[in-house]
Design a protein around this nucleic acid. Structure first.
Length: 579
RNA sequence: GCCUUGGUAGCUUAGUAGGUAGAGCAUCACAUUGGUAUUUUACAAAAAUGUGAAGGUCUUGAGUUCAAUUCUCAGCCAAGGCUCCA
């Protein structure tokens, strides 16, 4: 109920915004003004403003609010509606899309808008609102259409809620992986190197390496075979696959002495060539080729974002070549692997998206409706059988087949695909992949494309935001830091350092001449999970004082025992460590 | 690619109605007091205080000007949004 009220409030705020804009800038044409997750927006054409104009606009809105206008609902017939909206081309377009003849309008004061409501009773009910940002947005979300000016805002029932929200937003800004990653020294961005090409520091690389080893070991355990294929190929390869037709502008293509090459945007055709290099029997299947593949995509500049959207990235990719009767089982296996990975990484807030083709979009998708329907059916059966909760999304499939995407949100609430599983009926055809069946005839395998731990860069970004930088022990770039209380302890501290390093732990020593609280604070800021303090007492007893991130300190810990506990925690990839 | 915002020392930033820049933290050095300290998270210190140094072609280029970090234009880079995402 409260949420309904909040929606009403925000929707009414959007109207007031439009009303204020219309009165300040009469030439503006109105787009749409819906409520969104944390507020509302309104799109305007023919409006050029800056964020510094917000004050003026907000004041105008307050002026309107004061007049205590009632929001009055009315219904009009189509003809009458067209008359009302005659000067609003975008609204007329929306009107055309409406099927029924009773058109609802809301009016407050001299401002009337096409709108199905609902609204608050009076403009006076809107008290606590704020305009937050300006952005460009294409009319009807289509980049072929004109770009309108979108103003975002939010509104709440009381001042504290509004303040809290703005504060939370500011904190999210702090917690985002770009800021946090920089502060923790995980990666840097250098403009001489170029856009979308972040550099992983030794610490960031440690996390990457741990993830990489983890997934490789796990996949090999599950019957995958690792390949190593080149990061570039003659562009002919991508002509066969069709990628160059679909994505030419998004690829790095170059000429080398008259021959055209491309940096690979995906791994599929490379691994296909290994499959093709031998005659395959039905007995060989399924064949599962995996690779941590460096991929290159010339993403448009505005689409780049920290570690989440980059131009070179490493995808934990695999292609499973299987017979029709194996698809279901293999698909299940993949999901099991993905769920295991999600659990191990500690990700809980994710959901599945069943991404389907759009029959109307002939350009984007391989034209084979029968095969589309068939594969989508197969996928649907599987996900239904597994009782997965998922949302369906039309027009989100890969050009060669439907996908099951695993979606997550970043700190700003923006949704991204982290992992994906695809059933591909088209590329095996294009590459003429075959296997010899029991009947001695050639058959076409089905290929499952899948990623288990996604792009390592993106996964690291999600980990940073999800943990707030407090990585579990097995992922922490530095697992243990040793602090000395005074210079006499340095020798023993080094012994401990050597001992723990020999055990394969990532240990550092801070023997600088600073106070213990300061050293502890530094370690805290760097989010180091285990801190060992060494003073004379420890030195004398050959025991350690061990501090964990929860603030607890345990004294008189035996070194070997500590090493055992820590190693066990790492081995089990536990989310938390305590002693 | 488009819209908005921004780019000043390693980090966080102030500032200039156009006269070549300050601060805090961090770093390094020296001095003074202390005199070898028994322990854990942000108004704290179980070393403290002081002095000093180093660090900036004020994102790049062009234009206007006697003079540009500041104004204008163009580019580069970043952040947020739109579109896209094999």
């Amino acid at each position: 109920m409260a949420n309904d009220n909040l929606e009403k409030l925000r929707h009414s705020s959007a109207h007031l915004l439009a009303q204020a804009i219309k009165s300040l800038y009469p030439k503006v044409k109105l787009g749409v003004g819906p409520v969104i997750e944390n507020g509302f927006y309104y799109d305007f054409d023919n409006l050029e403003i800056k964020e510094s104009d917000f004050n003026k606009i907000e004041n105008k809105m307050r002026g309107i609010i004061k007049r205590n206008y009632k929001f009055v609902k009315s219904k009009k017939q189509r003809k009458a509606a067209e008359k009302i909206l005659k000067d609003e081309p975008y609204k007329l377009e929306l009107l055309k899309g409406l099927k029924n003849n009773d058109i609802t309008f809301y009016q407050d004061g001299d401002f009337v808008d096409l709108c199905k409501g609902p609204h608050v009773n009076s403009s006076k009910d809107v008290k606590f609102f704020k305009l937050t940002k300006i952005a460009g947005a294409y009319w009807k979300g289509d980049s072929k259409n004109k770009m309108l000016t979108r103003i975002y805002g939010t509104a709440f029932h009381n001042e504290n809620e509004l303040k809290d929200y703005l504060k939370l937003e500011a904190e999210a800004e702090e917690k985002n992986h770009v800021n946090l990653g920089k502060r923790l020294g995980l990666f840097v961005i250098d403009e001489t190197i170029g856009k979308g090409l972040p550099l992983l520091t030794p610490k960031g690389t440690t996390i990457r390496r741990v993830l990489e080893r983890f997934i490789q070991d796990e996949e090999i355990k599950r019957g995958y075979q690792y390949t190593r294929t080149p990061v570039l190929a003659k562009s002919d390869l991508y002509k066969i696959s069709g990628h160059i037709d679909h994505f030419r502008d998004d690829m790095f293509i170059f000429d080398a002495n008259g021959e055209e090459f491309a940096l690979r945007p995906m791994t599929c055709p490379h691994q296909f060539m290994i499959y093709k290099s031998e005659l395959r029997s039905y007995r060989d299947l399924p064949i599962k080729y995996a690779e941590i593949a460096d991929l290159f995509r010339n993403e448009k500049t505005g689409e780049l974002h920290g570690l989440i959207r980059v131009r070179q990235f490493s995808l934990a990719d695999a292609h499973i070549f299987c017979r029709d009767d194996q698809v279901e089982k293999e698909f299940e296996n993949v999901l099991d692997l993905i769920q295991y990975v999600m659990k191990t990484l500690g990700f809980k807030d994710y959901w599945y998206r069943f991404s389907k083709w759009d029959p109307k979009d002939k350009k984007k998708y391989v034209n084979n409706p029968k095969a589309w329907k068939n594969t989508q059916k197969i996928m649907k059966n599987i996900v239904d059988k597994l009782k997965l909760k998922y949302v369906e999304a039309d027009g989100e499939a890969a050009f060669y087949g439907p996908k099951l995407d695993i979606q997550m949100r970043n700190v700003f609430g923006k949704e991204d695909t982290v992992f994906t599983v695809q059933i591909d009926f088209a590329l095996p055809e294009k590459f003429e992949l075959t296997y010899e069946g029991e009947d001695g005839k050639k058959h076409r395998p089905i290929v499952i494309h899948r990623s288990s731990i996604g792009c390592l860069e993106r996964t690291i970004a999600m980990l940073i935001e999800h943990t707030g930088g407090n990585f579990p022990l097995w992922l922490s770039p530095t697992q243990i830091r040793i602090l000395t209380i005074n210079d006499k302890n340095i020798k023993f501290a080094n012994e401990v350092l050597d001992k723990l390093s020999e055990e394969g732990l990532r240990v550092e020593l801070n023997d600088r001449n600073e106070s213990i609280p300061k050293k502890v604070r530094d370690a805290q800021v760097e989010k180091i999970p285990i801190v060992i303090t060494i003073g004379d007492k420890e030195q004398k007893n050959k025991k350690l004082a061990v501090r964990t991130l929860n603030g607890k300190v345990k004294f008189n810990v035996n070194i070997n025992k500590l090493a055992t506990i820590v190693k066990e925690n790492i081995e089990n990839k536990n989310a938390k460590f305590s002693i």
